[in-house]
Design a protein around this nucleic acid. Sequence first.
DNA 1: TGCTTCTTTCCTGGTT
DNA 2: GAACCAGGAAAGAAGC
Length: 381
Amino acid sequence: MAATCEISNVFSNYFSAMYSSEDPALASAPPAAAFGADDLVLTLSNPQMPPEGTGGSQPPDIAPCLAEKASWSGKQPQLWSKAQVLDWISYQVEKNKYDASAIDFSRCDMDGATLCNCAPEELRLVFGPLGDQLYSQLWDLSNFPDELSWIIELLEKDSMAFQESLGPFDQGSPFSQEMLEESRQAGPYFPGSYGPGALSPGSSDVSTAGTATSQSPHSSDSGGSDVDLDPTDSKLFSRDGFPDYKKGDPKHGKRKRGRPRKLSKESRECLEGKKSKHAPRGTHLWEFIRDILIHPELNEGLMKWENRQEGVFKFLRSEAVAQLWGQKKKNSSMTYEKLSRAMRYYYKRGILERVDGRRLVYKFGKNSSGWKEEEAAGSRN
DNA sequence: TGCTTCTTTCCTGGTT
DNA sequence: GAACCAGGAAAGAAGC
């Protein structure tokens, strides 16, 4: 199915963007590259906001609430007016604390389409060092929201079919429903907008390499070795409103045990948008894991089946999966160690079974469902 | 309000 | 020594 292939490619890009900390281009890149991924994640969580809150000095849980909706946000850069282009440039200048005097404003009189057609060199000429940053941001704005919207559309259908096939048991497939629910708000849906009109990541000196190249996670992973995110490198998920105390703060000694206190109800509503009072719980780790596994076209390089019939699977990029889980649970400090602890609790409940002697390998138990081929197949028809 | 479930976090010790 | 695994303990979040 062609759509499946495209989803695969898109998610490869998406995951590469999120987990490409080992990408030399990204590793050596200035903060610009990191901003791209950061913005992407933030955009997913707070689509109604500009990629980053404009209230720089506000506390993280308040700032997004007060941020004024930018005129350019939620709109394809290609469609920006001249005024919106200027607005966006101002925003970037302010965000990066950039010296605006270095910008040749006489050459900024362009609309979005013109801006998008600029090569990185041209942007650098006009905006100086900020040019690379702008190019990177433009790439993200031009591509990711649309790609995700498109995936979301498809997965939503997939998820609905899956739930129908499973009946009442599986209300709330976390990967394909809740995650999509969160991601759906990423922005307006522009069918086919990442075609030829979009910025190309293929440019030679792409400072955006970290966010834009479509290097498959497989490429450096021949099965088993962990090419994971550094667990401490939580920048990707650092600005979606988590209280700072969640990150181990050496200045304040050890953290208390147990789950950190959540944001106030008001702050949460502000961050997440007004949701129904009784959102279904539905987000179970094992379901999340299962959904990654039964969507092989989406989980490239994250996990794999060792024995589909037996329900045996293996983590290939354990920390990446943990980060994804953490992102879903709005917990930037999630690690594979914590995730695996939760996994081990499933042994007692028969949701998972031990696989002795094999690292990173687990097996679905008799109390899990939805992973068997016939069940999963039902979700695709 | 209290109980229960499901994590999340921290920790120690063992294994690979 | 690093990464992973196992499991105890404590605690938060959310549903009932």
